[in-house]
Amino acid sequence: MQVDRSTQTGGVTENLELNGLPLAPAEANYGLLRAATYGHFTSMQVRDGRVRGLALHLERLDHSSRELFGQGISADRLLSALRGALDRAWSADVSIRVNAFSRDRVKFGQGIPVEPDLLITVSDPVAPTAEPPRLLAFEHERPVPHLKHTGTFSLLYYGREAQLAGYDDALFYDRSGHISEASIWNVCFATAGRIVWPDAAVLPGITMLSLQAGLDALAVARETVAVPLTDLAGYDAAYLTNSIDPALPVASVTTPAGTTQYKPDPASADLIAKAHAAIPLDLI
Score class of each variant (00 low, 15 high):
residue 234 G to A: 09
residue 221 A to G: 13
residue 275 A to L: 01
residue 152 T to E: 10
residue 280 P to C: 00
residue 40 H to T: 14
residue 51 V to F: 07
residue 237 A to F: 00
residue 24 A to M: 05
residue 8 Q to A: 14
residue 87 D to A: 06
residue 273 A to I: 09
residue 225 V to H: 11
residue 123 S to Y: 03
residue 132 P to K: 00
residue 196 V to M: 08
residue 74 S to G: 11
residue 222 R to L: 00
residue 7 T to Y: 13
residue 128 P to R: 02
residue 191 T to I: 15
residue 250 V to D: 07
residue 126 V to D: 03
residue 259 T to M: 06
residue 190 A to V: 05
residue 210 S to L: 12
residue 180 S to G: 11
residue 133 P to H: 00
residue 63 H to L: 15
residue 151 G to K: 11
residue 73 I to N: 04
residue 21 L to I: 15
residue 5 R to M: 13
residue 247 A to W: 07
residue 252 S to W: 06
residue 175 R to G: 06
residue 35 A to P: 00
residue 187 V to R: 09
residue 184 I to W: 12
residue 145 P to L: 00
residue 60 R to K: 08
residue 233 A to Y: 08
residue 6 S to F: 03
residue 54 L to P: 05
residue 232 L to I: 02
residue 60 R to P: 02
residue 47 R to F: 11
residue 92 A to W: 06
residue 58 L to T: 07
residue 143 P to W: 02
residue 227 V to P: 03
residue 70 G to R: 06
residue 107 K to P: 15
residue 164 L to Q: 14
residue 172 F to V: 04
residue 236 D to I: 03
residue 103 R to M: 10
residue 210 S to N: 13
residue 14 E to A: 06
residue 10 G to D: 01
residue 101 F to S: 08
residue 13 T to Y: 04
residue 149 H to R: 07
residue 266 P to N: 02
residue 19 N to T: 00
residue 108 F to K: 12
residue 95 S to D: 01
residue 182 A to W: 15
residue 232 L to Y: 08
residue 141 E to P: 14
residue 212 Q to H: 15
residue 50 R to Q: 12
residue 211 L to W: 01
residue 243 S to H: 09
residue 40 H to M: 12
residue 58 L to G: 14
residue 126 V to P: 06
residue 11 G to P: 11
residue 264 P to A: 07
residue 72 G to S: 02
residue 226 A to K: 14
residue 31 G to H: 13
residue 260 T to P: 10
residue 81 A to H: 12
residue 104 D to S: 13
residue 43 S to K: 04
residue 196 V to D: 12
residue 136 L to A: 00
residue 100 A to I: 03
residue 271 L to W: 10
residue 2 Q to D: 10
residue 133 P to V: 03
residue 250 V to W: 05
residue 216 D to L: 01
residue 120 I to M: 02
residue 57 H to P: 03
residue 198 P to C: 00
residue 99 N to W: 04
residue 22 P to D: 02
residue 72 G to I: 03
residue 211 L to A: 12
residue 147 L to N: 00
residue 76 D to W: 13
residue 173 Y to W: 11
residue 191 T to C: 12
residue 239 Y to D: 04
residue 92 A to Q: 13
residue 208 M to N: 14
residue 261 Q to T: 15
residue 85 A to S: 13
residue 208 M to P: 05
residue 33 L to G: 09
residue 20 G to D: 04
residue 78 L to W: 01
residue 25 P to T: 01
residue 223 E to P: 03
residue 148 K to A: 08
residue 226 A to H: 04
residue 79 L to M: 14
residue 66 R to L: 06
residue 260 T to G: 00
residue 251 A to W: 07
residue 178 H to Q: 14
residue 165 A to C: 02
residue 196 V to P: 09
residue 53 G to A: 07
residue 11 G to F: 08
residue 269 A to N: 01
residue 45 Q to R: 09
residue 192 A to N: 12
residue 146 H to W: 04
residue 242 N to H: 08
residue 39 G to Y: 03
residue 250 V to N: 05
residue 278 A to F: 01
residue 262 Y to L: 03
residue 51 V to L: 09
residue 20 G to R: 05
residue 22 P to C: 01
residue 37 T to Y: 10
residue 146 H to R: 14
residue 227 V to N: 00
residue 79 L to S: 10
residue 257 A to I: 04
residue 163 Q to Y: 01
residue 158 Y to Q: 07
residue 244 I to S: 15
residue 251 A to P: 03
residue 259 T to K: 09
residue 54 L to T: 06
residue 130 A to L: 08
residue 249 P to K: 07
residue 102 S to W: 02
residue 88 R to D: 05
residue 150 T to C: 12
